[in-house]
Each structure stands twice: as structure tokens, then as C-alpha cells.
Design a protein around this nucleic acid. Structure first.
Lengths: 299, 299
DNA sequence: AAACTGTTTTTTCACGATAAAAGACATTAA
DNA sequence: TTAATGTCTTTTATCGTGAAAAAACAGTTT
């Protein structure tokens, strides 16, 4: 089977959505940058669109013939990367109980269960290892360290250290820095969400990530910026896992973000520190309450 | 070729050194734990030792017949892991000039040049990416970010944050904690080295790593402990690269370590902070002076 | 019966091969 | 003569395969 063409399928679907807006498509290189793929892939997309009668394609002329129908799209699940598929499978197993700390992870078994080659699983595990949840025994298997209370505490300790520093750096940024406009925009989005919190509360997690990433970027330190990947990953699955009082939690968080933004805009380091601390404290609390008490944390 | 038997060869060599000390070898499982390999490998080793007339092997009886000769050993280079070989090759290219920031890395070319499969190179690059020196373009090549001044500054910023916190945690450890004995032992080694600094100054880098790892471990935070891998890696190659004034630098560092150890033993947080800061500052300076001025740091 | 040795099965590690995707080069149109 | 299209080459992503190494099982010895 060697390689799935999910890049093509995903780009094709995104290109279909473009069709609604225009009567004719731009040049191949332009489409390429627009979709984030190479011209080779763009041409496959165009070829198929011609075949299915969506467009007429002759050299530079790419005229839209009809609007895309639902069945023109490739099914969602065929557009995922292998890495995403493996990650989801792995996290499901990890969170859906029975994942005791110390348990060993079998590459071959995982690969068979997901229906992929061992190489992909190996590469996934290597990439995943930086999240601190698994560990490799030299020349041997991987060991699961478990999504425990200790893990959450270690993670949040670093997070707090990094974010306090980033927030301070943010506040010290010159007034003409473009981040202030970004912050303004995020503030608007927060206010909007606050108004519609009753119905749109699940839109928070995405906004949360963008907000914190903006702040972390102010540190101008790749290790701090990269570490947010760990946090984002954990919170991503945590949100899916723990739906208890989601609406209330998010409402509180939006309020804290707004206060935090206010503090940043004041550029008063004392206020920034206080607002940041307050938010991080409740974020930690949220994470901690969702973790079941650890059983017997051995070695 | 599929897989080299470097585990066997390395364990065999180490086992040869064991032969000098005893008249007969222990049981297979015991040898296994001693050498850190499985019983399967132990049996291969014993089989070969019997063949070459080093021992007589009959079930439990493994009597040493003669002392090992130099030519009994496998050549050193055959005992390295593929990962080590790739890392060395890669770092040599990276440090030996011509490694401009922004340059792209070609898996296939690297693999061919080193004479290994692409899979091993890919896995190496994924593992190596956490050091922050390279970055992956989705569905495409890796990009070298370069061993620049900016990199060194970002690295040391985190290092200082982590070490100051770890040192404070260390000083707060209860008196009956085993780390105090470890520290005592390290202090002795430092004193010894200080006395013989003229001849043994290159023994410092190994001692340095052990000392700092001991301190970082006091943080009881996996992210802090793991981050020392990044530091260790950089300093390892940095030591090989920059030999200028090595003796003087190391002499100074040993002195700083001793003051640092003294401060830790006093358990006075103010003193610890001061000693730690002082040492980290000069460590940063050392690293920075060895990096040539960056040319044009783009994007 | 506890700990060892002998044997078999399973898993990890690394390779070469192949389709997807990217990239480079040659050609043509505006 | 610039920027597109058409064509060809190279690189990346993924798999199946096989040897090395680990692990499990079964039979022995003390």
C-alpha cells in the first residue's frame, strides 16, 4: 500500500470550498500556495475536477461549471494523516482506562491493532516521547508512565514558569509591535464568546490555545514556544475527556482571560503577574480535578 | 543486512574484561543483568568464548581457561549503535563549517553518505528535533536552524531558569536524603581533580555532567530532568569543538563548582542562588565565545 | 521448589522497495 | 521576458521482510 494520498484528498476538499466563491480558478502555482501543497498535487486535483465535470480545464483557463455537491467531497476520515490516526488510537487506549503506569507498550501489537506498519508506530512513539508520558527501555519496549497527578503537577510547574516569563516579556514589548493588534483582535473574540457563552462554550478551547500561544511567542525562546505543544496536546485530550461543568469552567476562563488581557494592555508588570497567576492557578485546578487519584505510583 | 549485532559485540567486549577478575563466570541470568543484555545474547557470548578457547562451558560450569588477548576483542567501531554513528556524522557536518542556517536537510543524501537506511536517518532526525536545531516542513524536507548565538542564548535562558529552581529544591531536601552523600562524593572528586588539574583537565566534562544532573534531579520534574539532555548534548560537542583555553576554563569551573557545593551544603538559599548564578553566568560566557558571530539571521 | 539451562516464540531494529508528493527542468503562451 | 504549463527527476512516507535481541516456555539440576 506504501502511502495514502490523504494530502491530495484533503487539499481536494479544501479546493472544492473555494469553488463556491469564484467563477474561475487561479494559476497552478497560486493554487499551490493557497492550499499549501505542491503543483503536482494541484494538477491531480484539477484533473479530477475536470473528470467529474466540476470545471473545464484548458491550460490557463479553469472555469467553474457547477457548484460542488456533498458527494463530491472525499470522506473526512480519508483526509487524516497516518500520524493523526495513530495518535488518536493511542490516546483513546491511554485514556479509556486500563492504562496503568508501568505497563509496557508493544509496537507490533499497536501496529496490528491500528492496521499500519511498525515503522509509522515507531516514529509516532519517538515523537510522542517528548510529552513525557512514555519512556524507552534501551533495546527493548516502551514503558507507559501514566497520565497521573504527578504528571499534571510537573507539567503545570513548567507551564507557570514559562508563561509568567512570557507574559512579562509581552508587556514589555514596544507599542508599535504587531502583537498588540493581535491581542486586540483576541480580546474582541473573547467578548463575543462571553456574550454567546451559553451556546458556543465549546469554541473556547481553540481560542484558549491561540491566546496562550500568542503570549508564549513573546518570550522569543524556541524551547518555551515548543513546550506549548505539550500543554496543547494534554489540554486537547483533557477537554475531550472531561466534559463535567464544561460550560461553567469555560465561562470562568473567558473572564480570567479578559482580565489577563486588560493587565497586559496596562503594561503594568505587577498587574500582569497577578492576572497571569490567577488564571494559571485555576487552569491547574481544572486539570487536576479531572485526574483520578493515582493508585500506587511505583518507581 | 537488516540489523548489526553491536549489542552482542559490545557486551562481549565488556564480558572479556570480567574474565580477568574471576576463575569462573556466574549463571546466565546473572551475567545478563550484569551486562545489561538478555540471556539470548549472553548465550551467544558464551558460545563464542567457548569456541575461541577462552572458557570451558558445560551447563553451569563456565571455567576460565586463559586470559583474553587484545585480538579477542571486537574492534571499537563495531560496538557503536547506529544512532551513535548517525549522530556523530551529522554533528560533524553541522559543526565542520558550511552549515548555514536555513539550509535544507536531505534524508536520502544523509543516509547514502553515512551508508545506512533512510528509516534510521528519519528516526534520528525526529529524535534530534527536540534539541531545537532542526525543524520539519510538513510533507517535505527538514530545515537547519543553525548553531547560532540566538540558539545559545535561548538554551541558556531555560537552563538558568531550571537550574536555579533545582538548586533551591536541592538545598531544601531533608538532611537524611541520599543526595547529600552523593554531593559529598562529588565534592571529593572535584577536590581531587583540582589538585591534578594540570594533567587531568579533560576529565572535567564528564564530572560536570554528573554534578549538574544530580542538581536537576532534585527538581523532581521530568521536564527539567529531560531538558538536561539538550544541554549535555550541546556541551558535549561544544567541548570537542572548542579546545581554546580548555585547561583554564575547566580550572575556573571546578572552583565555581566547589563554591556552589559549599553553598548547597550550607542550605542557605541566598548563598545557593548567588553561587549558582555566578557559575551559570560563566558557563554561558564560555559557550557564547565559542560561537562565531552570526552572519545574517534570516526569518 | 527455587534457580538454572535448553528451546521456541515474539518483538525490535534496520533495510530495500514502491507509491505519493515535492521539486527541477524544459517548453510555451501572454 | 516573465510567468505560466507540460514533463521528468528526486525525495518523502510507508510497507513488508528478515536478522538480532528479548522474552516466554519447558525441562533439569541442585
Amino acid at each position: 500500500m506504501s502511502k495514502s494520498n490523504n494530502v491530495y484528498k484533503d487539499a481536494y476538499n479544501r479546493c472544492l470550498r473555494l469553488l463556491d466563491e469564484t467563477r474561475s480558478l487561479p494559476s497552478e502555482p497560486e493554487l499551490g500556495t493557497l492550499l499549501g501543497v505542491s503543483r503536482t498535487t494541484v494538477r491531480s486535483i484539477l484533473a479530477r475536477m475536470e473528470e467529474t465535470g466540476l470545471i473545464a480545464w484548458n491550460k490557463r483557463a479553469k472555469t467553474v461549471l457547477r457548484d460542488p455537491r456533498p458527494d463530491d467531497f472525499f470522506p473526512e476520515e480519508e483526509t487524516d494523516t497516518l500520524a493523526e490516526i495513530i495518535e488518536r488510537s493511542f490516546m483513546r487506549r491511554l485514556l479509556a482506562g486500563g492504562a496503568e503506569a508501568g505497563m509496557q507498550i508493544n509496537e507490533l501489537e499497536l501496529a496490528r491493532e491500528i492496521g499500519v506498519g511498525t515503522t509509522s508506530v515507531r516514529e509516532f512513539l519517538i515523537r510522542f516521547s517528548r510529552f513525557g508520558l512514555i519512556e524507552k527501555r534501551r533495546n527493548s519496549h516502551w514503558v507507559l508512565k501514566g497520565f497521573t497527578r504527578a504528571f499534571a503537577l510537573e507539567l503545570t510547574e513548567i507551564r507557570e514558569m514559562f508563561e509568567l516569563r512570557s507574559a512579562a516579556a509581552f508587556a514589555a514589548l514596544p507599542t508599535d509591535s504587531p502583537v498588540w493588534a493581535d491581542l486586540e483582535r483576541l480580546e474582541d473574540e473573547h467578548r463575543q464568546l462571553a456574550r454567546e457563552i451559553a451556546t458556543r462554550f465549546n469554541a473556547f478551547s481553540e481560542l484558549d490555545e491561540r491566546f496562550h500561544r500568542l503570549i508564549h511567542r513573546a518570550s522569543r525562546n524556541r524551547f518555551i514556544v515548543d513546550f506549548y505543544d505539550v500543554i496543547a496536546m494534554i489540554f486537547h485530550y483533557h477537554y475531550q475527556w472531561n466534559k463535567a461543568q464544561e460550560r461553567e469552567r469555560n465561562e470562568v476562563a473567558v473572564g480570567e482571560h479578559l482580565a489577563y488581557i486588560e493587565a497586559l494592555k496596562s503594561r503594568d508588570l505587577g498587574k500582569v503577574d497577578a492576572a497571569c497567576r490567577k488564571h494559571l492557578k485555576s487552569a491547574r485546578q481544572t486539570l487536576l480535578t479531572s485526574i483520578p487519584e493515582s493508585r500506587s505510583p511505583k518507581s
